[in-house]
């Protein structure tokens, strides 16, 4: 693999006995938007803080544009960091917070111009003289973003920037972050444990679990071709089916890819409806598979059905139905490794 703009080599970190990161290898291209995705405690924040220089790795190497920065202090790296708690200084106004890192580098008038520019970018002109406690969560988040951008960083590091916000504000700010990412032409690494956020925003997703990187790929790749049951299960909904025909192979299918069929086709799977939930645009139906003698097996599949199909097939509880698994959408795992999500 050729070396990326920002490259992490063989990085490990432990806290006492506990491994927080193990043998991390990661290459990030310039201008890329990367999401670090994984369950709680898998080491995302630790990796981000090591990249920022706020934490020391036990071993491994970090380079940017070929330059080794493993030992460089955080302040020299020219990375902008935005913290999960925002870490806005509560006694300073919005403008003072944004100007905080500038005061040693620029003249007074240059700072004023820069602050004006950033306030405009995040649309907080009116709020410039307020203190953080007078702002809403979304506004605080934008101040934190503006402060991280103030020094025109090469890399922007975001630790769960949206997790404290409610759903509506979140979607608006997702676009805002993407807009600023494009405008500044930065390389951005964002930590999240919200898979939807990762799928919609990232150029590439880095899926982590238990201190390791499990898969790196575009959103489409990790969604459609997860390399292990963990990734398949962690991103989106999925059903696992153990087949009798092919031993030790595990098949998986996304609920929206299951096709209901009518009539008695030999190849179709037979199942009985156990439960369903209304999701607005579609119904999510849980069915239990039946064997050739129509006895229920300990195998369940979820199927997403548009309301229209639901009515057409007259789906009710305890009703039998038949479905096909389109081969192009069936995901196959060779070993029946653990499918548990950490």
């Amino acid at each position: 693999m050729n070396q990326g703009y920002l490259s992490v080599r063989n990085l490990s970190k432990r806290f006492g006995k506990q491994a927080a990161l193990q043998e991390i290898e990661l290459d990030i291209n310039k201008h890329e938007f990367i999401c670090l995705l994984g369950p709680s405690g898998c080491g995302k924040t630790t990796l981000l803080r090591i990249i920022a220089g706020l934490e020391k790795a036990d071993q491994g190497q970090l380079t940017i544009a070929g330059r080794d920065i493993t030992r460089e202090p955080a302040g020299k790296r020219n990375f902008g960091m935005m913290f999960q708690s925002y870490a806005l200084f509560p006694n300073l106004t919005v403008a003072e917070n944004i100007a905080y890192g500038l005061s040693n580098r620029l003249s007074k008038s240059q700072i004023a111009d820069r602050v004006d520019e950033l306030l405009g970018l995040v649309e907080l002109d009116e709020q410039r003289n307020k203190v953080p406690s007078q702002l809403s969560g979304g506004q605080q988040q934008r101040v934190a973003l503006a402060r991280a951008l103030a020094l025109s960083p090469d890399c922007l590091l975001l630790d769960e920037p949206l997790s404290a916000l409610d759903a509506k504000v979140r979607i608006k700010l997702r676009r805002e972050i993407l807009r600023l990412h494009e405008k500044f032409g930065m390389t951005t690494i964002m930590v999240t444990h919200d898979q939807e956020e990762a799928l919609t925003m990232a150029d590439r997703i880095v899926v982590m679990n238990q201190a390791r990187i499990i898969q790196i790929g575009t959103p489409k790749e990790v969604y459609e071709k997860p390399n292990c049951p963990f990734v398949a299960d962690f991103i989106g909904a999925i059903s696992f089916i153990e087949t009798e025909k092919q031993e030790s192979a595990l098949l998986a299918i996304r609920p929206e890819h299951v096709q209901l069929v009518r009539g008695d086709q030999d190849k179709s799977n037979r199942a009985i409806v156990r439960d369903y939930e209304y999701h607005g645009a579609y119904y999510r139906v849980l069915v239990q598979l039946l064997d050739s003698q129509d006895h229920p097996m300990q195998q369940f599949v979820t199927i997403d059905l548009p309301s229209q199909t639901m009515a057409n097939f007259n789906v009710k509880k305890n009703q039998k139905l038949m479905f096909n698994l389109p081969p192009e959408h069936v995901i196959r795992f060779d070993s029946t490794a653990s499918i548990a999500v950490g």
Binding site: G75, A87, N91, L92, L151
Partner: peptide, 25 residues
């Protein structure tokens, strides 16, 4: 917030400045 120090470090602001400007007040 325990991240004040990390935030000022990543902005290359010396610790004693954040101490005097934020933590003390």
């Amino acid at each position: 917030d325990s991240e004040f120090e990390a935030a000022s470090e990543s902005m290359n602001v010396p610790w004693y400045r954040t101490l005097l400007r934020v933590t003390v007040p």
